[in-house]
Design a protein around this nucleic acid. Sequence first.
RNA 1: GGGCGCGUAGCCUAGCCUGGAUAGGGCACCGGGUUCCUAACCCGGCGGUCGAGGGUUCAAAUCCCUCCGCGCCCGCCA
Length: 599
Amino acid sequence: MADSRAPTAAEATDPWTPWAAAGRAGLLDAARALGVPCEPAAVEAALEVKAVPEHDLAFPTHRLAAAVHRPAPELAAALAGAIPPSRTLPQVTSEGAYVNFRVDPVELVRSTLGLVLARGATYGHGPRGTSSVCVEHTSANPTGPFHIGRVRNAIIGDTLARALRASGAPVTTQYYVDDMGRQSAMITWLWTRPEADWPAPVREASAGPTERGGKADHRRGRPYPALSAYLKEHPETAASVADLVRRIETGEAPPEHAAIAREVLAGMLASLARLGIAFDEFVWESQFVRDGAVASVLARLRAAPHAVEEENGAWAIEAGSYGLPKESDRVVFQRADGTSLYVSRDVAYHLAKLGRYARVVDVLGQDHRLHARTLEALLAELGEPRRPEFVLYQDITAPQGGRMSTRGGSAVWLDDLLDEAVERARGEVLQRRNDLPPDQVAAIAEAVATGAVRFHVLRVAPEKPVKFRWEEALSFEGRSGPFVQYAYARASSVLRKGEADRPPYPFEPERLADPEELALVRILSRFPRTVAYAARSAHVHTLAGYAHELADQFNRFYHAVPVLTGGEARASRIALVAAYRQTLGNALGLLGLVPLETM
RNA sequence: GGGCGCGUAGCCUAGCCUGGAUAGGGCACCGGGUUCCUAACCCGGCGGUCGAGGGUUCAAAUCCCUCCGCGCCCGCCA
């Protein structure tokens, strides 16, 4: 009697919930009637929501058949025969070893479109939860412009935060700003003295006109590679920088230090803002030194079970038991001079996060894998039972292979990529449209360009290694951001011309019976499951795949079925287009792509 | 050397967690489509020993083992 259950919160968000419940109930009843022992959990796990016309729900009977020593096809046929067709699931058949259910397409259309149009911008979102999540991502040192190798972190992290929010969790995004290390000290070391006093090679490398109107990340970061190279050859200068590092840790940093870091960071954030990426909070590493948290961590670690003092006064944890590589069976957490290391400060940061949030997620390049393990080992050593969750991605490598390096000239600046993308996008717009004012052309070009870049990063699973190639990153066709945005703009145009660009959208579900219409509805119906999976698994690339699949099917529908000249079906088709545009718009929102009304 | 990740058509990629029906897409290439809601589109074709081998299973791209190739990491750096 699945039909008479009270709807749950999930039912109000996922159109498939009632059907899946009915399918499970039917299978369990049939198994009982046939005397086949069958665990509800087993049915729940095996029953698949396929949402394809041939079998909306499918149940493979192989496992069950093996348990009762009967041939699977025979069991499938028996089960299918024992499940009476209902209004909810009017067709139950067996095919080979499968029991297949088909839903009434009219009901599928009715409930899906009804749900999408009723929920609007929240279609696909889960029930509001209270379990807070902190997502830390990007966290690049404020020492110069973003390059492409790093931007994958920001795009994945931002999208994950969006997906988690949609799933119902209260999310806080954090950017951890490293203002304590040698790298930010180098920038301060340079910019707190007159350029005339800079080492000659560094001065020469920074000569010439200021780039990008003096954008701080480019201006302040320009001498960085030259200084880095210079320090390798000149120990006396390196010692001077090292002295600055120590002064920063002991709170004697020059007053300009924080201001310079802030200025560079602002430049970097301006680039990210073009991609729709912003942060709720910035956490400065120095804060944990200032407020005593680091000192407390060091003291607790020195008293920890596996703490050892080295001959020269440094302190370490014997970490062999934590599964770390044999070579690093000791994790040094305090230098001989008593100062802290990055990982110790990171422990203080993570203790603060774990105290404040139910879930702590860190988006990290896989080159930080060992650091993550070390961090876990130190948390364990402190008796902290909770752990952050790590989302690891592979760095994007240079076109000729190898890591993108600022020094080797193989780095591609994010700003250059975006500018090039905008230039190409403008060309594409002007090729098709001569009726738009320049500012609208510019706005479309910017949205298309940033959409292309975001989608290009998001279409691939994070653990996959990616080589940066201009032609691929700037693709506007096929499986791309602009393809999806275009399919949104088309729907917008239809609704505009139909003078139906606002609700309500009355529809008669039985009028939407074309295979292309039903295929579109089926994809719409899967959106809530897709969002939930992306948030749960952190596999945000599945959202990109979904958006492309949805847009692709809309294009097929669009070519096959006239909407505005649809006669009796016109209103219902307009409703379908509206539901589609709503869903795709919601998906674009999760992906961080700008939905364009026209392009 | 050890650890982690990756290997699917000429190129890129989904599916791998949780084994299940004919391995889905895209680019490129070939052939079609616009008196009709935007052709950044659609339709058709071409192209696959799922790195190799073994194992588990009624069933393996998916799980296990071995090997090969590529990338990253193995600091009292961050």
